[in-house]
Design a protein around this nucleic acid. Structure first.
Lengths: 227, 227
DNA sequence: AGAAATTTGTTCGTATGTATA
DNA sequence: TTATACATACGAACAAATTTC
């Protein structure tokens, strides 16, 4: 009759230590951690165990290790999350339709929240972006501004879950689904419709007109497979 | 004039190796990895570096290390993602309202997809769960069946992004936001209303009636702060 | 049941490359 | 340029848990 004894592994002490330090405000992004030797001595463990812990933290996006210089706090989860998402969905078999499906879901849900919470600065950014979008000469530029516009929309929702998911998703798309970025509107006709949709979406946001921006978004979805 | 030479760290070889093996189908969940010593020799690196890589993989949820036994493939991202979400939103300052907001967004978006894609088996599970829910005697049971019902809904949507996010979110709620689990319906009146909402949601799903299930969901949201 | 072999967990020592003053 | 501090990486050893014979 063996009781399942959950032995905590040594390297986790390091993870916990750093996390706690961050939580308590003792460590902030950019700060330098104690050297590995000091850390090892402090926690009463070996340097290898310290390193295993640091590798984990590095991979999570909490720590950045610089050869010869030291270990530093660097909070960039989005990259990490997108990497994880990428691997997850790579294994499960990426279905591009599902990816697009999820993207539009996020934007649809973000919209009403954005209408409620959008700030004057964000409104200005939205109008500026849609203006640049209309003036853009190359397809590259258009893609970039298009992307920015949609990111602004999600950003304005003010819901961190939505925002992080969206960032991770877009980063994921960039990395793993090149084909999506290549689907570009070809006909002049549909491009005009797309610009109209963009403008409607943007103006609706600025005017806090849910129906208007929503119909702009729906048209956007209709006129493009993905972008 | 030094060109920034991006030196790949040794431990990443292990991460790549395992990921590739999984991608190519050479390794599947449950399979045993080569021993650390063999891995080290195979890749021409030290065992310490192998271990650093394995720790990373373990923390991502790709590998499970068993003392004295070996390293095994175990694809359980949900736990990992919830842990990451937990830490992220812990740092950003968890706002319970935002969490709830995100949860209902997922369910709202999952609903129409579930209506389209739900399988007969899932329908049966839904009806069984709602039946158990109505027969349940204790608050504990009700919470459990309630949770199952909503998970079935999201599951039936067939969108892995939604599913993983939902699982991670619920796991996150369990771990970090105890207060939410404690918000239990007290009055008999509202409990009846809640049961009605549940039944409507379930029947709508089974009958593929979007409006019915949607109104059930909306009522559910209305009658409970979170659960 | 028990002993031996296997495998991971952990530590120490050492050498090397890199950054910084 | 030199010296120091630091991360990177390797190898060997022993402990602890598991498997095998």
């Amino acid at each position: 009759m063996m009781e399942r004894q959950e032995m905590p592994k040594t390297y986790k002490q390091v993870v916990r230590f750093v996390k706690d330090q961050i939580r308590d405000g003792a460590l902030s992004p950019g700060d330098k951690l104690p050297t590995e030797r000091v850390l090892a001595e402090t926690l009463g463990i070996s340097r290898n165990s310290v390193r295993e812990g640091l590798r984990v933290l590095e991979n999570i996006g909490v720590v950045s290790s610089m050869h010869g210089s030291g270990n530093f706090i660097s909070l960039n989860f989005d990259e990490t999350m997108s990497e994880m998402l990428g691997f997850m969905y790579f294994l499960k078999g990426v279905n591009e339709d599902k990816v697009a499906e999820f993207r539009w879901m996020i934007e649809r849900e973000a919209l009403p929240l954005a209408i409620l919470r959008i700030t004057p600065e964000e409104k200005q950014a939205v109008m500026h972006t849609v203006h640049c979008l209309e003036e853009a000469q190359t397809e590259e530029e258009r893609l970039e501004y298009d992307r920015t516009l949609h990111e602004l929309l999600v950003q304005a929702s003010g819901n961190d879950f939505l925002i992080s998911n969206y960032k991770a998703l877009m980063s994921f798309i960039d990395r793993y689904i090149q084909s999506m970025r290549k689907r570009i509107i070809e006909g002049m006709e549909s491009r005009n419709m797309l610009e109209l949709a963009h403008r409607k979406l943007a103006e609706g946001l600025v005017e806090c007109d849910l129906d208007k921006s929503r119909s702009g978004l729906e048209e956007h979805i209709g006129y493009t497979a993905m972008f």
